[in-house]
Computed example of a mutant assay.
Amino acid sequence: MKIAYSPCPNDTFVFHAWAHGLIPNAPKLDVTYADIDITNNLATQPNSLDILKISYAALPWALTEYALLPCGGALGRGCGPLILTKQKSDDPSVLSGRRVAVPSERSTAYLLFRLWATKNVPGGVGEIVVMPFHEIMPAVRDGKIDAGLVIHEARFTYGNYDLNMLQDLGNWWEKDTNLPIPLGAIIARRSLDLIKISEIIRSSVEYAWANPDVSADYILCHAQEMSIDVAQAHINLYVNEFTRNLGEEGYEAVFTLLSRAAKEGLVPSFDLDALRWDDRK
């Protein structure tokens, strides 16, 4: 079974047991490690991948061929994207007409940024530059861009680049909606046994929680110049009960994000019921 997910600690932690044959009766995985911008695009193009990790923001483009799985993804509180600048300021107007780097045009981070900027940046921002997320902070530090939208472990490391946090988009979202932030989703081809795949992923998550040290070498091997402490903080933040099961609150967060985005014309309109299949039976 072919799968694509990022080399980030939360994904390698979640899928370690399955990828290493530790889940009984689970099919063998052929893993592709890819940046979220790549997987977001793969989800809308002809390919042979059975399962992908993508941004929730990219779901409206993927739902024809793929179904959202109710487990394995990243959704939570206190884990939102950050807007970083070199200059110290908390005034959103400093972004007016400026160049901003984002990790993917179809990332949840960028979708949250657009929803926030519509209300807070007079006249709107200027040029949007897409670049791999690990290149964004150096680019802001070096003055190549005016601001950067960062995700993942950048929350813990941006101080190392002497950067200023202009806005925590997670805090903004949570205050505005009282809901967790839908970040990364796991999708699988609709032609597959979605119930079985979901059970395997839950088993992989539960194995990881029960045996946290077993996956350490795998996680650090794929993490990009990351200490064990940063990797563990990353896992603690992004792997939680929503990773085991989205539940009603998780689905409500996804519905709210995508319905707001569709209303603003930021994603295609689609049938929200298509986000849920027979996991409710």
Rank of each mutant, 00 (worst) to 15 (best):
S215E: 03
Y207Q: 00
V254F: 09
M165W: 04
G73V: 06
P60I: 07
T243R: 01
D30Q: 01
V205W: 00
I83V: 15
P24R: 01
L163T: 11
P27L: 12
F270P: 08
F113M: 11
T32V: 11
A58N: 15
T64E: 15
N240M: 04
Y5T: 07
M1C: 10
R260S: 12
A4I: 08
L115S: 05
L194E: 01
V129H: 13
A210Q: 01
Y158C: 05
L272Q: 10
M137N: 06
K281R: 11
A101I: 02
L29H: 07
C71N: 01
R98G: 12
R280V: 15
V254I: 08
P70E: 03
L82F: 09
S191D: 13
N178M: 09
I181Y: 04
I3E: 06
D142R: 15
E249Q: 06
I219D: 01
V205N: 02
A117P: 00
S104D: 08
D271H: 00
I181R: 00
R77W: 08
V14Q: 06
E252G: 13
E252M: 12
A231Y: 03
L29A: 14
R99Q: 14
S198G: 03
Y207V: 00
G73I: 05
T108F: 00
K53R: 15
D90G: 14
I200M: 05
S227I: 06
G21Q: 07
R244V: 11
R202V: 05
E225R: 12
E241Q: 07
D30A: 04
L84V: 15
A253V: 02
Q167F: 02
P132M: 11
M137S: 11
N10W: 14
S215T: 00
G124V: 00
P60Y: 09
V239G: 03
I235V: 08
W18F: 08
D142Y: 12
V239D: 00
L166M: 15
E174R: 07
E264T: 10
